[in-house]
Nucleic acid binder design. Structure first.
Lengths: 320, 320
DNA sequence: TCACAGTTAGAGCAAAAGCTTAATTAAAGG
DNA sequence: CCTTTAATTAAGCTTTTGCTCTAACTGTGA
């Protein structure tokens, strides 16, 4: 296995000494050079050798470290632009504690910008919690646009009107979409999409500098159904269609491919299309969301993710 | 226990992030500053904070690391000038493998000096092995002086004549002590110590720039007896006197205090007195030497130590 | 013995890190 | 609401580090 010569081993020994003096005893390379009686450059080379040989290992004793590792892995694996992992509560790994705060912090970064930004939003509890964490701000330079309708099929407003409440909080120009989430017919959908203000909203959404969406799971606890956008029959239909999840009401399968079914046919939401350089954040966490998030990542429906440690681990386990 | 405020925890979180980016992801502080959206000096402070809070831990995956740790502990505990710990062979922890090479390396450091040095030597197998590892050198500027007699009680030369063989190897001026190790009477001792050349040797020994001595254990494998300087009766007498060890034939107890007995009364060796800035190296390793080394350290009979990992661990365990 | 290939050490330089001071900004408290 | 205090930032400097280029050295084979 290790076929190192004697001199190589002696060199590694010196490297270990140098690395020890450098990292543990906090000597400078000059001091190491003196103590080991070599030139400063040699000391530097020894330290570098120790590092490259994997002799020294740095460990971060803080919950955050695991998170950043997970974020890095997810970024790599799914070619993400951004990824934020919130530490999970070890007592309740599925809780979304902290997710809102972190998402809000990300969001705030955009809002603090002086250059005008267009930010597009989906709906959902996660996003609602996120904007509730936002501080009051004055940012009239930005535009906040909705990606989907905010009306129930009976004409009432959606319980999670992200865009309006957010715009109130940050004093930004906003563009809600006064449409039903799901049209009653293809004809109605085409008609409504043909209205000029709707067209401009959809155009604005497409060129958003950043997009924030929730990710909905399927099954009997699907937000789509829980929030009354579809009925139980439709929900069951989706399950039998092998739907894995939903983003701004676009339903997709295990591979993250949009499904050809009645819902996707009638959905009024802006099309899900990714611009390579503009982040589309999926915000979601919890055991029930794992499959939906995983599929969305696989299909490239989102290119940035905010989730928690536990969920990130579950997603990464699916790959192996 | 930890009464950190919320903002302090958030700060530590940032510190952890910064440290992660710095140490794990190998970002520069500038990059970290950008990513965390703070100034470079804040990023610097965060990294420093993480370090000072003990968030980041560096581990050295090499046998040497343990050695340097042990050396550091021994230095601290016994206020040593120097301490070298040689890795132990895990298969044979008591073997003195490597001890000679390391000691020789230390010795060589003095010999390589251009400024004339006076080096004083005891006797023993460890020292003999050490000088056998020395390369041939030309260093006529140095003086090599013996700390104790090299004659057996029958007048024959000691088996371990360190000074002469060493001087041969490095071409240095040398001062052997042509005296018995132990005098037959106090009168003989005083007589011999009164001879002018002996006086000058003893004076030279006292001002040595570095001293190297072996450490002998007591009991039935005591070098003092094995090498024929004392007989079994004397050896047993020493044990009943609670002798713990012997350095250049000065016998001391568990506390490293010289014992008032017939041997110390008759010993011809140079007095054991430490100069605060001149190192006196004890060179010894192995299970049988642990007590003797420990006592010598406690009593301050030596102020520098060369031993191996196993022995160092045993010594440190005695403290706890 | 000498020349040659391959490696290794040393000089110098540019980048990064660490530190200090002054000025600005945010936060806490009256 | 204002004042005081603490923290943050920017600027500039020194030290430390990383890297590259050249010289020297080692060992090999003719």
């Amino acid at each position: 296995m290790d076929n190192k010569s004697n001199s190589e081993l002696a060199r590694l020994e010196d490297a270990a000494r140098a690395a020890w003096l450098y990292y543990v005893a906090k000597n400078t390379q000059d001091e190491i050079a003196q103590k080991l009686e070599v030139s400063r450059q040699s000391a530097q080379r020894l330290v570098a050798l120790a590092v490259s040989e994997g002799l020294i290992k740095v460990r971060l004793d803080h919950p955050i470290s695991r998170c950043m590792e997970l974020a890095e892995q997810l970024k790599q694996r799914f070619n993400l632009l951004e990824c934020e992992i919130v530490p999970s509560d070890p007592a309740d790994q599925s809780s979304t504690h902290g997710l809102a705060q972190t998402s809000a912090a990300v969001l705030e970064r955009y809002l603090k910008s002086d250059t005008p930004k267009t930010l597009a939003f989906g709906t959902g509890r996660a996003l609602k919690a996120c904007i509730d964490e936002l501080p009051s701000m004055q940012c009239p330079q930005h535009k906040i646009v909705s990606l989907l309708g905010n009306m129930m099929s009976d004409g009432s407003a959606s319980a999670f009107d992200i865009v309006v409440s957010m715009a109130n909080r940050v004093q930004a120009k906003h563009y809600p979409m006064p449409l039903p989430v799901i049209a009653h017919s293809v004809a109605e959908k085409q008609l409504l999409h043909g209205i000029t203000p709707v067209k401009s909203i959809l155009a604005l959404a497409q060129q958003a500098d950043a997009t924030f969406v929730g990710i909905g799971q399927m099954g009997n606890n699907s937000p789509l159904m829980v929030d009354g956008f579809i009925d139980l029959a439709k929900a069951n239909e989706l399950v039998s269609d092998n739907a894995a999840g939903e983003i701004i009401s676009w339903v997709y399968d295990k591979q993250g491919q949009l499904i050809n079914n009645s819902i996707n046919e009638l959905v009024m939401s802006a099309p899900l299309q990714l611009n390579a350089s503009k982040p589309v954040y999926g915000i979601a966490a919890g055991q029930s969301k794992v499959n939906a998030i995983y599929a969305a990542l696989k299909g490239g429906l989102i290119n940035s993710l905010i989730t928690n440690e536990y969920t990130a681990e579950q997603i990464l386990q699916k790959i192996k």
